[in-house]
Computed example of a mutant assay.
Amino acid sequence: MSNPNQLFLLADHIKLSLLERQRAQTLHLDDAGGSNQDSHISRSLDQFRDGVNSLEEEKTRLESGGEDASAITDALPSLQKQLNDLTSQFHGFASPSANETLTHPNSASLTEDFSHASSTERKASKTVRFSDTPSSPSRELFGPYHDDPEPENHGYADHAQTLDNQQLHQYHSQILDDQDEQLDRLGESIGRQRDLSMQIGDELDSHVAMLDEVESATDRHQSRLDRASRAVNKVARSAGDNKQITAIVVLIIILVLLIAILK
């Protein structure tokens, strides 16, 4: 998530979760799911932090390429401040700055939700609670998530702005679960590729050993051919010397016969 608007929406979601946690503690409501809620808030903060870091990297990239990064430059200080304040609030280090950040939404459409989450009145008619398994999820609510959704599919920010606090939490939780599932599948794929790479490496090692054996055999045969060639040359030289001796002997015999005949 590296879009400033999406990060502002995520910040509002974290604020609502923190306000609901404070409200539950103030009203001494059932805290059976408190640790689970803290886990979701922690994961949201991690995603918020990763998104801010991605924005900083994107800003550096755009500025290095001479492109316009004014939108990111304007949004980063506010996002970074909200990240610091919300992290402090989550870990119990409240401050006037953090309290002000916590109670002011980035989106005006969430003002009513913030007002309700900040209320300390116990209402029997309506109790906002978070659930990992909502009783009647809609198909639209749990549609496929895209990092860069198309306009006709109503992007994450546009769709989330139409949801109430509970639905927003469910929607964001489902997104995180989908991302975890995708990471699990990616891990399995990487594991299979690793096994395949190891098999290819073993096969290459066996081929290298075979090539070494062929090279050794070739060297032995070359040595034998060299010895045979030297022997053939020696025989050829010997045969040439023998021809000269034979010619001399024949000439001597012919000379002796001529002397005998002329006498």
Rank of each mutant, 00 (worst) to 15 (best):
R129W: 02
S189M: 12
S135A: 14
Q174H: 13
L183P: 00
R139M: 08
S173H: 06
D148K: 15
F130G: 00
P144H: 04
E150I: 00
A157I: 06
E150S: 11
N165Y: 11
G143T: 12
D148Y: 14
Q166R: 11
T111H: 12
T127L: 14
P144E: 01
E150H: 05
E150L: 07
T133N: 09
Y171E: 05
S173Q: 11
P144L: 02
S136Y: 15
Y145A: 04
P151S: 09
L163M: 10
F130I: 12
Q182G: 04
S131W: 05
Y145F: 13
S138C: 02
P134G: 02
T120Q: 06
P137H: 08
F114T: 07
A157H: 12
Q161V: 05
H116V: 01
E181W: 05
E121K: 09
S115V: 01
S131H: 12
D177G: 02
S119V: 03
Q174F: 08
S173Y: 04
L168C: 05
K126S: 13
E112M: 09
L141N: 02
D148M: 10
S125C: 07
N165L: 11
Q179T: 13
Q170M: 03
N153Q: 13
Q179L: 14
E140A: 08
V128M: 06
P144M: 00
V128R: 12
A160P: 00
L186M: 10
D178T: 08
T162I: 00
E188T: 08
Q161P: 01
R194W: 15
R129A: 09
P134D: 03
G155P: 01
E181M: 08
I175R: 13
E140G: 03
L141A: 00
P151H: 08
S189P: 00
Y145W: 13
L183W: 04
D164G: 05
K123H: 13
N153H: 14
D177I: 09
K123T: 07
Y156D: 06
D147G: 06
Q174G: 05
Q174L: 01
K123M: 04
D184F: 07
F142L: 10
R192S: 11
S138L: 07
K126C: 14
A124F: 15
S125A: 10
N165K: 10
T111E: 15
Q161Y: 03
Y145L: 00
T111Q: 15
D164Q: 09
H159M: 10
Q182S: 05
S189L: 11
R185P: 04
R129P: 01
Q170V: 03
R122Y: 14
R185E: 15
S189C: 08
Q161W: 07
Q174C: 04
P144W: 00
Q167D: 08
Q166N: 06
K123I: 07
R185H: 13
H169T: 15
K123P: 00
D178E: 13
A157V: 12
T111A: 10
H146L: 06
R194H: 15
L163P: 05
H159V: 07
D180G: 04
D184R: 09
D195N: 14
A160Q: 09
P137I: 03
P134Q: 01
I175C: 01
S115C: 02
D148T: 13
S125T: 11
N153E: 11
P151D: 11
S138W: 01
Q166V: 11
D178S: 05
D195A: 14
D184N: 08
P134Y: 02
R192V: 09
F130P: 04
R129N: 10
T127V: 14
G187P: 00
P134E: 03
N165H: 12
